[in-house]
Structures are given as C-alpha cells and as structure tokens.
Simulated scan of single mutants.
Amino acid sequence: MVRSGFIRLATGLACLLGLFAAPAQAQPDTEVDLALVIAVDISFSMDTDEQALQREGFAQAFRSKPVHDAIRGGMLGRIAVTYVEWAGSPDQKVIIPWTVLDNSESLMAFADRISSTPLRRAQRTSISSAIDFSVKLFDENGLNAARRVIDISGDGPNNQGRLVIEARDAAVAKGIIINGLPIMLRQPGYLDIPDLDIYYRDCVIGGQGAFTVPARERDQFIEAIKTKILLEVANLMPEQSLINRIQSPPRTNCMAGEMQWRDRWSN
C-alpha cells in the first residue's frame, strides 16, 4: 500500500511538472482574444546576425512584463500564437504550432522554444506565399478568436509566387489583419528596394487598424519587435505614424521585386 501510494504521488508530480514544461497546444473550439501568426523571413538576404536579432526580439517580447500584462488584460486573458519561418514560395515551415499563452509560465516556455530553434536560411522571398500559408493556419486551427492577425517581417519585396497584393486582399477579405515589420538595417543593395517601409505600407499590410513598425537601426531592432508584439496583443495602434516623411511619396510599385528578379535574368 505504501509503495503504491508513492507511485501515485510520483505520477501526480510528474504530471504537474509536465504542465510547466511547455505551453499547452491549442485545442479546437478554444476561445482566445487573439490568434497571432508570427511569420519571419529567413531568406538568404537576411544575414545570420539579423536572423539572430530577429529571433531574440520575439523571444524577449514574450518574456516581457508589458506583454504578460496585456494578455491578462484581455477579455479572456489568453491568446494563441504560432511561429512560422518563410522564404520562397515552396518554403514555409511551422516552427512552433498553435500554442495557448495564458500565464507567465506558458509565455516563458514559448519564448524559450523560439530561442532554442536552430537558425536556417533559404532561397527567394515570397511574402504572398507566407500570407497564404498563414491564412491556411487560421482555417485549420479550430480556434474561436476575437481577432486574427498575421505579423510578417522581412527585409525585401516579394519576388516569387503570386502578387503580394492579391494574397493580402484575400486575407483581408476573410477579416484577417496583416501587420508588417520591414527590416531596414543596411543600405539597399542588389535586389533590395529603397523605402521598404513604404512598400510594406502600400503592398503588404491590410485590414482594420493595420500598421507597420520599421526596424531601421540594429540597436533598435529588438525594441521594434517588442513594441510591435505589445501593440498587437493589446489591440492598440501606434500613437503616431512610425513612417516619418516630410512629404507623402507616390505609391509604391507592388511588383518591384518581381521586376528586379526578371531584370536580373534577362540581362
């Protein structure tokens, strides 16, 4: 009897510890304040230092007290998040599946999973395919979310797959919001475009309250990511536009990346 009691106690402790080992994966019909796809660019244009900073920024965001407080302040006090890496049109990969975050332990565990995933890189840049892939993740997750948001970050324009505006408009038609984090840490080079923030504003983001938070300085990159996640979780808009221009430039050519790629191979 004593031995069986110890076995039951040990089993119970193991189950209890298991609850804190990793955040719970989302179950069908779970109600959440927000379902968020974090879609991060891993194309070869992103150097390994940029990738490491990007990953650390998202990890720090989910460790931060303001984000924890914002989640608790929601109507239900929980969100669901999935972390996706993308590059060209055939290359999208779920790194962390849909996970419910509703307490500090689940948030810290989610951040640790982001930090511990090995870096990888792949060819081309297909923002449109990343959006389409993210939309399918919403369709398949079975969650009941008050808001559905795609958080897409990248350092270049779409140059593969269907037109980015077609993917954006299809997502927005389903009530999905797309926010952007254009990465502008270096001078535009080969196959880059100037004013990537304007390209993201005109061609990538969409939906009610959509916004961008550009990352222009390496030492501000992590803070830009943390700010963006906090705004999305808290359902807030930046106090003022984070795209600062003396005059409004003409609208961007949303086929700029495709044209660059075509010109590369036609010369």
Rank of each mutant, 00 (worst) to 15 (best):
Q54N: 10
A21S: 10
P28D: 01
P23G: 12
T48F: 08
R3L: 07
L13V: 11
Q51R: 14
S4A: 11
L17C: 15
F20H: 11
L17G: 12
Q60I: 08
Q51G: 09
L17E: 08
F20G: 09
V32P: 01
G12F: 04
E50W: 10
P28G: 07
G5D: 07
A21N: 07
R3Q: 08
I42S: 05
L53V: 00
V37H: 01
L16G: 09
A39S: 15
F58V: 08
C15R: 14
G18P: 03
G12K: 05
A10Y: 04
A39Y: 06
D41K: 13
Q60C: 04
A26P: 03
A10M: 08
E31K: 00
L17M: 15
L17R: 11
E50T: 15
A52K: 08
F58C: 04
D47E: 10
L34Q: 06
A35N: 01
D47C: 13
V32Q: 00
A14K: 11
A39T: 15
G5R: 08
S45L: 02
G57L: 00
A26Q: 01
T30A: 10
G12M: 14
L53D: 13
E56I: 04
E50D: 15
I42P: 02
G5Y: 04
L16Q: 12
L9N: 08
V32L: 00
D33F: 02
Q54H: 12
L9F: 15
T11N: 15
G12S: 12
Q60P: 05
G57R: 03
S4K: 13
T48C: 09
D33R: 01
A35W: 00
D29P: 03
P28L: 09
D29W: 08
A52T: 15
L36E: 02
A21I: 14
G5N: 13
A39L: 08
S45K: 11
A10K: 02
Q27M: 07
A52R: 14
E56Q: 13
A39M: 06
A26L: 05
A14M: 15
L9Q: 15
L17Y: 10
D41L: 03
Q54C: 15
A59T: 02
I38T: 13
A21E: 10
R3M: 09
V37F: 03
V40M: 01
Q54A: 08
A22I: 04
G12N: 12
A24R: 14
S45T: 05
L13Y: 06
D47W: 10
L36C: 06
S45N: 07
A21W: 13
T48L: 09
P23Y: 00
M46Q: 06
E31I: 09
D29E: 13
Q54P: 03
A21K: 09
L19T: 14
S4V: 02
L19D: 04
Q60N: 11
D41T: 15
R3C: 04
T30I: 06
S4Q: 13
L19M: 14
D47K: 14
L9E: 11
E50K: 07
R8I: 01
G5C: 06
A24C: 06
T48K: 08
L9Y: 10
I7T: 12
D33G: 07
E50N: 10
V32H: 02
L19Y: 09
L36N: 05
V40F: 03
S43F: 06
G12A: 15
V37C: 04
A26I: 06
F44P: 07
Q25L: 07
L13D: 01
L17K: 10
T48H: 06
C15N: 12
M46T: 01
L16W: 13
Q51W: 04
